[in-house]
Design a protein around this nucleic acid. Sequence first.
DNA 1: GCTACAGTTCAATAGTTCTAAAACAGTTGC
DNA 2: GCAACTGTTTTAGAACTATTGAACTGTAGC
Lengths: 103, 103
Amino acid sequence: MPQYPAPPIEAVTITGVLFALSDPSRLRIIAELDRLDAESICDHLGGELAKSTRSHHLKTLRTAGLTHTRTQGRYNYVSLRREELDARFPGLLDAVLAHAPVD
Amino acid sequence: MPQYPAPPIEAVTITGVLFALSDPSRLRIIAELDRLDAESICDHLGGELAKSTRSHHLKTLRTAGLTHTRTQGRYNYVSLRREELDARFPGLLDAVLAHAPVD
DNA sequence: GCTACAGTTCAATAGTTCTAAAACAGTTGC
DNA sequence: GCAACTGTTTTAGAACTATTGAACTGTAGC
């Protein structure tokens, strides 16, 4: 299952991160990953979305540097790059997630 | 000089703010306003931009709730809604502006 | 091999955004 | 009134984005 690798954290830009988080579906996915504090299967993220739409949003999040994806067997395990992002943009995720939809 | 009023702070959404800040030109404008800590004339913001492009970005920032505009005579004075935004999204602007271009 | 499954990629459409020239509106000062 | 000035609005084009169905890739299990 081919995938774009997540960019190195130094290459992650503030504008790229802000844009990735500015879509309600993507912000929800990030909020879910943060709340879980663990990996999640793609299919369990983002609520009611067509699978191709979900895949598109997950790709956007990955290429913006917000998530990491690991493939094992049939599943792709997605995780939030919390520590790296907190180190690069201190306080940003906390501030954003404080106002993310709690669904 | 007709203008859209800035929305009440309660109507300002996190996704709207993140989107407004996700454009390099707009982020630069916000960083300039923050550094100035004062009102600024439209023409002095955003560096080298066509005036219609500048006006477009300023409108985007205003409707997203980030700025306030006051007209006096020939000039429009733009200011950052710092206190209101800090109250609604604590820590967000600080986190973002810590990584805004310093130009 | 075959079926079921997870997920990506492709293709198409609809809507949005960025950029900027041109035209326009309001203000100032002569 | 008129010219200069600030800024908005209009209009247009190119580029990008969101959404989804369909086709496709790879894996698991029988």
